[in-house]
Design a binder for these strands. Structure first.
Lengths: 229, 229
DNA sequence: CGCCCTTTTGAAGAAAATCAAGGGCAGTGG
DNA sequence: CCACTGCCCTTGATTTTCTTCAAAAGGGCG
């Protein structure tokens, strides 16, 4: 339970020298555990730390006035959130732990010092934010076709876990159909029907929290998915 | 046709000292004019400059495989794009000029120098990017109700032009119903019907490219709009 | 076992897309 | 000056997609 995955995630954006990696892994931090289905960061709060996911799945979401929820992104181990602290702005959305999560909480001043010492890491943080933005744009772009947006979400989650893009691969997907629907912008009932289509097309299987992609290339076809755009 | 509006836009995020404002307005740049309905930046290209809108309306968009278009944001005078250059990443979307546009093209190195000299401006650029992200999340959040998302777009554009939030106000909206539909994720025909609802409710009027908001407070009610979130 | 949460399926209704046809208005050219 | 043309707006009718409401079936866990 260390910052190794965070360093890996940064290394995805920029090449890291050994010393730079050590700087990241040596960041002073405290850890915070958030129980399954609990809110990690509230909307409207101004987090004093950068939150790095060490373990578990979390997500960003907003609430509508009728109480319904919209997920706008997922946080996997190694991902971070709460960069709002940099801007001293309150969160426009909240962070929910889908599973029990462990976060590393890093004080802003240590991030500042890190970036001052290794500017390339600052660039990586920019890149990571831009990647978030790209994902949001992609969700919007695909939002006219729920089958496509669903297939695309699975491809996205598959790629973000750095699983092999050949043959079949399986991973834990700790989301209910309601969660997925909230991410796709459709109801749980409709999510179920969409899921069935993909299952009957022989592209995926989803049992007991394990999602198996049985035909990744056709799934990517359906999703119009471009690997790491 | 100077960088004054850009400085104003920056000043929206952080307080600017006189000297800092002069640094911005004195940024070396060339200008580029893009004709109405032409592409300013192509998807896949890696812009070598930061593009600042001096005059005109532009927008970000992506194309689907069936040729349909999705707008994911608007660029008004003072706004910038092409920050991708910072990351040496190709554009994941394209920029379209809705009207004839004039852009200021600023070389990356001058932005770097500016930020080095006045770090607070770097923070403002972050803030502006985060604002883009917030808008994307808001579009997603509202996307389940086309009347609300339409009303919200008008509120957004109204606020971004810093028009008074009382009484009625009018501004040039150089978009066709097809453009608006592409921004809302609905068809032009449906956009027309939604627009009629707002008109018949006495909230807006739209004639000859001029949009008049006749009842801003009720429009914001319908839109669930929060001023500058 | 019984309970709760989730998944699955059906049927009816609402929302939006699609298809199709007019209508208004500005610009162009005879 | 007027007819023509092209673009956009408007409206109607039909079909598809998605939601809503409802109910039953599965699965994990005390």
């Amino acid at each position: 339970m260390s910052l190794t995955l965070f360093a890996d995630s940064i290394a995805n954006y920029v090449p890291l020298a050994k010393g730079e990696r050590q700087l990241i892994e040596g960041l002073p931090h405290i850890t915070r555990s958030v129980a399954r289905r609990r809110e990690a960061i509230r909307r409207g709060s101004t987090p004093e730390y950068l939150y790095v996911v060490l373990e578990g799945w979390a997500g960003r979401y907003g609430l509508r006035s009728d109480g319904s929820r919209r997920l706008t992104g997922f946080l996997l181990p190694g991902d971070f959130c709460g960069i709002h602290a940099v801007c001293h702005k309150p969160m426009d959305h909240a962070i929910l732990a889908f599973t029990k999560c462990n976060f590393a909480l890093v004080e802003q001043k240590y991030i500042d010092a890190l970036v001052a010492e290794a500017p390339i890491i600052g660039q990586a943080l920019w890149n990571a934010k831009l990647r978030d933005e790209i994902r949001l744009r992609t969700w919007l772009l695909n939002s006219d076709d729920s089958l496509r947006v669903y297939a695309h979400l699975i491809c996205e989650l598959h790629e973000r876990q750095r699983l092999p893009a050949e043959g079949s691969s399986a991973f834990a997907l700790p989301l209910t159909q309601e969660d997925i629907g909230d991410a796709l912008g459709i109801t749980a009932v409709h999510t179920n029907r969409i899921m069935r289509k993909l299952r009957e097309a022989g592209l995926i299987a989803h049992k007991r929290g394990i999602l198996t992609i049985t035909d990744i290339s056709n799934l990517r076809e359906v999703a119009h998915f471009n690997p790491s755009p």
